[in-house]
């Protein structure tokens, strides 16, 4: 296990440097000079332009710029935003809890519904349940997210008035947010109704964000289950006279979990990085919108730092997934 962890950490480091290089290069490939973007329509004099270039280090060769950036990163300094002049680090951690809260709720919902749906579909293969569940999964998978979100808003916020349209918290409430997680902070605040308000704000974005992972998990669970259900050990379990829920839910599902966990890990990655549409539609103050805005502003430090931090989070999720494999399937444990 220790050797396994070490080898993973080594890859971790290589990926880390790779991501810094790519994020550094990518934003510079996009046409548009950050200083000119900063100046806006008014423009600026040549002297002022050169002065700013020197100040931000753009007059240096690219390799030197990268080296300065990399050494800064390794010392924990991601630089500061061109626009707000605040450290990237602070901005990220002010916004990231909102994204994390939403993503976690979404993935929990997707797992809680997707795995049982996949199991039920596999056990009833070819029957009504299977067809109904898999058709809805296909619809969920292929539906444009923004359209689905607007539809939900129209019905549940507009017509029925059950949920708020956007934001994370009702305007009636104001309290400090030490953790950044609205569910926790609203509980800590002790204000009546704050927690309910937090939940009501979470419902629609969670459903919207969970839709695609839910569909993917359900389909993956079904196909993995179908494969496992024809295995010899399932026949053995049936020959023992075990109850169906035990055969399907324990003997089969545990073996079917490996590909499902892979898909869950991948979904968590895309959720954290790609909740942009959902965050935009629901005015959710997370990192998705922050990153997109920074790209438009050519805010190099924010784009680089944001990409890097998201990549690190995704790598951590993958590391956890790798360790879960061994936990679920002992054959993988001993092979490593």
């Amino acid at each position: 296990m220790l050797r396994f962890l070490f080898s993973r950490l080594a890859t971790f480091f290589v990926t880390f440097v790779g991501v810094t290089l790519i994020s550094f290069a990518f934003i510079r490939v996009i046409p548009g000079d950050p200083i000119i973007v900063m100046a806006g329509e008014r423009g600026m004099s040549q002297e002022r332009y050169e002065e700013l270039s020197r100040q931000y280090g753009f007059d240096q060769p690219l390799l030197t710029q990268f080296w300065d950036y990399l050494t800064g990163v390794l010392q924990g300094d991601l630089g500061q935003s061109f626009v707000t002049k605040k450290p990237v680090w602070d901005e990220f951690f002010a916004l990231f809890p909102a994204t994390l809260e939403l993503s976690l709720c979404a993935i929990i919902l997707a797992i809680a519904l997707g795995i049982p749906a996949g199991v039920i579909a596999a056990v009833n293969r070819g029957k009504f349940f299977d067809r109904a569940l898999m058709s809805s999964a296909l619809v969920g998978y292929s539906m444009p997210i923004f359209w689905w979100a607007l539809l939900l808003i129209i019905v549940f916020s507009g017509n029925l008035g059950w949920t708020p349209v956007s934001g994370r918290m009702g305007l009636l409430y104001y309290f400090p947010t030490p953790t950044g997680f609205m569910l926790i902070d609203s509980l800590l605040s002790g204000q009546d109704g704050a927690f309910t308000s937090a939940i009501r704000h979470l419902i629609l974005p969670t459903i919207v964000l969970a839709t695609i992972p839910l569909a993917v998990i359900a389909r993956q669970t079904r196909s993995a289950m179908l494969e496992v259900l024809s295995e010899d050990y399932i026949r053995t379990a049936r020959a023992k006279g075990l109850k169906p829920w035990r055969i399907n839910g324990l003997h089969a599902l545990r073996n079917a979990m490996i590909p499902v966990i892979t898909v869950i890990g991948l979904s968590v990655g895309t959720l954290l990085a790609g909740a942009i549409l959902t965050e935009t539609i629901f005015s959710w103050p997370g990192i998705g919108k922050w990153m997109v805005d920074s790209i438009f502003r050519r805010d190099y430090p924010v784009v680089q730092g944001g990409l890097l931090l998201v990549a690190v989070v995704v790598m951590i999720v993958n590391l956890i997934v790798d360790m879960l494999y061994g936990l679920i399937n002992p054959r993988i444990r001993t092979r490593k």
């Binding site: 295995e231 010899d232 050990y233 026949r235 053995t236 379990a237 003997h251 545990r254 073996n255 679920i328 399937n329 002992p330 054959r331």
Partner: peptide
């Protein structure tokens, strides 16, 4: 009991 003891036992337990 079955032909293939290796695959007839559940590998996860």
């Amino acid at each position: 009991i079955f032909q293939e003891p290796m695959s007839s036992l559940n590998p996860c337990f």
